[in-house]
Design a protein around this nucleic acid. Structure first.
Lengths: 219, 219
DNA sequence: AAAAATATTTAAGCTTACTTAAAAATTAAT
DNA sequence: ATTAATTTTTAAGTAAGCTTAAATATTTTT
């Protein structure tokens, strides 16, 4: 399957499961930086191929086949990220950029080799779950956005939901890393900011960041 | 640059430096399993882009720019092969197949990371030299084909020049591996066969194999 | 050196994955 | 509930990278 098709079904999948936006051609077009016309066109073609359901002016819906393809690509992406992060000294942004390309040129065979090498990881360095070889996500996500965390409680960082270099640079500089622990000092509900304490530093985060940093309660 | 273009200049480079065949569009077409017409077409386009020199009915000649591109792709290919071979338990044929895809989606940055991780290797598992980051091959090749080796002498396997799965399977089964040592027992010049001794086994190889197995005299 | 065989080039056409511009439908605003 | 704004779709067109078929040039054979 072509890169364009793989990216298209992946975008639909992520749009629905992560961003919870309207999954219409236009939304996908924006994500992929292509025109609306191109997205509509592709939608029709993929409907013919049985990867999704398309009806004029309605939301796109991946079929089982389409979902499987999306999860296969996502699996490869997240395995590559895990692998590159572990072996090389690369930033979260860099591993994402490389994985974005490699994911389309990776055989199932190689993906399994990488998974085996890493000990069948269930999460990538962003905290995103890695689908297994059958295209299933077996882990349950109980994490919440930092914006909704409670004052005075300690949390473990479970997910950094972004593709943005500046965000990752900020995280790296401040110890905001998958698995690390922090304490929520105060929620400023009026200003929509969150004050946290992490490795003896106090940081004030605004909503842009607290809605993409996910955490679970620390034990 | 596109995959098609990268493969085209790579094919020209290898055709000239390894196979020493006529580097005309038809030869390249065969290698890439495309029509002669497509190869002629591509040749013209790449000439416009300054990657090669094209004159009707003449041999194609890579420019410095084209050569640099070819060597960059070859570098990535051979680094991937070295990397996959070292980390995973994969056959020479499998690593080649995967590298053939990955080579086109690998940034210079990642290639350098891989090289660094491996300790800046100069040869891949086939014994092929790996161009450095500047696209230069700094090693001298003093190896000879096994078909031209002398009776009674000991040699080190320096290169397995093939893409063929059956050949590699045969090599793996019989200890014919880059760096291993063998002794040439007899050259049957009439039958164009070579008898070798390797790890207590005697093997009779025909010309198909002795012209793609390269060796250097063992010390 | 001419004929036959082979290779290369040209021409026309196809598919994929886009584009822009205009038309049609939907959604939001007053 | 119209009107306005936004989205989606249709239509027409482009570039890359191929194809087959026919024309042309080069090589090889005799």
């Amino acid at each position: 399957m072509s890169v364009a098709v793989e990216n298209f079904v992946k975008a639909i999948y992520k749009n629905k499961h992560q961003d919870h936006k309207d999954t219409k051609p236009g939304t996908i077009a924006k994500k992929l930086s292509i025109s609306n016309a191109a997205a509509t066109d592709m939608s029709k073609k993929l409907a013919e191929r049985g990867l999704l359901k398309y009806e004029k002016y309605q939301e796109l819906q991946l079929t089982d086949k389409g979902t499987k393809m999306a999860l296969s690509v996502i699996r490869k992406h997240r395995l590559w990220e895990s692998f590159l992060f572990k072996l090389f000294d690369m930033s979260l942004h860099d591993i994402h950029r490389e994985a974005e390309l490699l994911e389309h040129e990776t055989s199932d065979f190689l993906a399994d080799k990488i998974s085996e090498y890493l000990g069948y990881p269930k999460f990538d360095p962003h905290g995103d779950p890695i689908p297994n070889a059958d295209g299933e996500i077996t882990t349950k996500d109980t994490s919440i956005a930092l914006s909704g965390a409670e004052e005075g409680r300690r949390y473990t960082i479970s997910r950094l939901m972004s593709d943005d270099k500046e965000f990752f640079d900020f995280c790296a500089m401040n110890g905001l890393r998958f698995g690390n622990t922090l304490e929520v000092v105060k929620q400023f509900s009026n200003n929509k900011m969150t004050q946290i304490s992490i490795s003896n530093n106090t940081i004030l985060l605004n909503q842009d960041f607290t809605t993409i940093i996910y955490v679970t309660e620390a034990v």
